[in-house]
Amino acid sequence: MFPEPKEGKTRRVGFLLLPGFSMNSFTFAMEPLRVASKVAREPLYDCPVFSLDGKNVEASNGLRLEVQGDLASASAPENIILCGGHNISGFDTSDFMPWLRSIGRQGKVIGALYTASYYLAKAGLADKTKCAVHWEYLSAFKETFPEIDTSNELFEVSAKGFTCVGGTAGLDMMLNFISDLHGFELARMVADQFVHERIRDRREFQYFGLSARYSIQDQRLLRVIQIMEDHLEEPLSLEELSKIAGSSRRQLERMFSKQFNKSPARYYSELRLYRSRQLIMQTKMRIIEVALACGYNSSAHFSRCYRNFFGCTPLSERKLPSQTQKL
């Protein structure tokens, strides 16, 4: 992925830490490059770290990291990796977005970790055929950028750069890059340093399949759950779901009661409400837009269901600090 350096053997890969960046995602992407130089006993990579204003930047876990420069300094490396956090729209991008578009025009390799793919898309630099997005932000991303084809895979690589869902996927991505550039043996040795027994391919999915996630073997039930997840905006009736499962409505209700101790209607409703919460917290969509995107015909009905389940209205939820577990 990273092109040959203009001078010498050292590739410069700069990391731009956005406010509230994920320390987890940053570490798993940067450390394999450092370790590769250590194992190879030569400076294969130089990894300077930057922030928007050149000041130390706070990660999502509260730790502050010292940086080497600001946006102007970050323009120097041929390869730039944006490190995002959970607070997608919580900082001023008036200087950042023009800088990012300028970097794109210069033909530099631009990578995005975790939620930073949002900024690539906003700047018009995301690959519209494939863009890897963390599963937690996938719904919000699709609603905000419907023209971009999103991916459930660990990372995606294009001629412009790459996107990565963050977390440990950054480690696998960098190990794949090291293997391509310096050979599998070096990548394996770097993986050993992390006690990482297997280098995952980019095509692997971010999370367990339905069967492993719920410990379900009944293919009829798995099919119904998948159909529910695929039809949140236009919910299907229980009769339609029963037909898909090849069972009666009563049989479907027994399957859900045995597996989840709740009715299929309740399970379906909770899926839609959890999806709506993601959109409330991660986008600026109007309440009625969120309601329609999750299968509710009116904002009033949606707000009542939301309050009954989460204990607060969608509008008040949006004003609260996010309590969602972050990487």
Rank of each mutant, 00 (worst) to 15 (best):
R203N: 11
A116T: 04
N176C: 11
G84K: 01
F310H: 05
E7C: 08
A187G: 03
I199N: 01
D172I: 03
G170F: 09
S303C: 12
K108M: 07
R213M: 13
I280T: 07
V39R: 06
Y274T: 01
S263Y: 04
R223M: 13
M97F: 12
H301T: 12
D53F: 11
I227Q: 12
R249S: 04
G183S: 06
G85W: 03
R64A: 13
Q282W: 10
K284M: 07
C131I: 08
R220Y: 14
N87I: 08
F50N: 00
F310Y: 13
A187H: 01
L236G: 06
K243R: 11
S215N: 14
F145Q: 05
N56E: 15
P98R: 06
S322D: 07
Q323L: 12
R318P: 08
A245C: 02
A112R: 01
E197K: 10
E31I: 11
F309L: 04
F310S: 02
N56S: 15
S73H: 11
H301Y: 10
F50Q: 01
K55C: 12
A116R: 03
L320A: 15
E204N: 10
L82A: 03
L44I: 10
M173P: 01
K258V: 07
S215G: 09
F21S: 05
N79S: 11
V157P: 01
M30A: 13
M255Q: 05
S73P: 02
V35H: 03
Q325L: 15
I88H: 01
G183T: 09
S215Q: 13
R254A: 06
H196P: 00
G246H: 06
A76T: 10
L241N: 02
R101T: 10
A140R: 02
M30L: 13
K258S: 08
D192T: 06
V109E: 09
C164E: 05
N308I: 07
R198F: 14
D95P: 00
E204K: 08
A74D: 03
D46H: 13
D92Q: 07
L52C: 09
I110H: 08
Y274L: 05
D92N: 14
F309C: 02
D192Q: 09
Q193D: 03
V13H: 08
R200H: 11
S151W: 08
T163H: 07
E58C: 13
L17E: 02
Q68V: 06
F205Y: 09
F21A: 03
V109F: 15
L327R: 06
F194R: 01
K243I: 02
V290F: 14
A59R: 04
T115D: 02
L252E: 00
R272C: 03
L292T: 12
